[in-house]
Amino acid sequence: MIKDTVKQALQDLFPDPEPVVEEPVAQEADGEEAGDSKKKAKKKEEPRANGVLERDHAKYGCDLDVQLEPGELLATVMILDKASFFLESITGVDWIKEDQLEVVYDFSRYDFEICRVVIRTRTPRSTPLVPTISKIFPGANWHERETHDFFGIKFDGHPHLVPLLLPEDADFHPLLKDFKP
């Protein structure tokens, strides 16, 4: 129930209110040409469009999967804050092939009706910049510092973005895929 209300609220953020359906890997479109498998493989590489996806909790461990532009992040997090979600973690993923860094936020609720919401946003690898959510969730402070340590992602407006887990003079980001120790 909470899942539906949150999903509705999140979908209102996107200009296109059509719910994004998870593609069943284009099974009905086969038989067109012999080089179909090649085409399929190419299709898989396409970046995911922004929007809300509903996920199978038993398979993925989350219920809603939201991808958005960094600019929409604060509005989304505020919706989750109002719906009394708590912040589980923030992390990054380095998609070096696409030359992008992804920031992943996990939100969950203190509730028997579990609803884990994952928010992803992508930022260019050369100038990674995402707004901070530590003003809404003070607990994000450490998580953002950690993500900055490991990936070099800058959090705009963060009060104290200095290394937390790495040495205080660290100028390297070990979880970048091109990191050489």
Partner: peptide
């Protein structure tokens, strides 16, 4: 894919985010 698993340890909710790219190593292991 991107998988999340939470368990209750003695100290609280411990979670693992596993991003797999289909190889024998994890792509991201949070």
């Amino acid at each position: 894919g991107d998988y999340y698993q939470a368990v209750e340890t003695a100290r609280g909710s411990f979670g693992i985010r596993l991003v797999s790219d289909g190889t024998k190593n994890a792509y991201r292991f949070k």
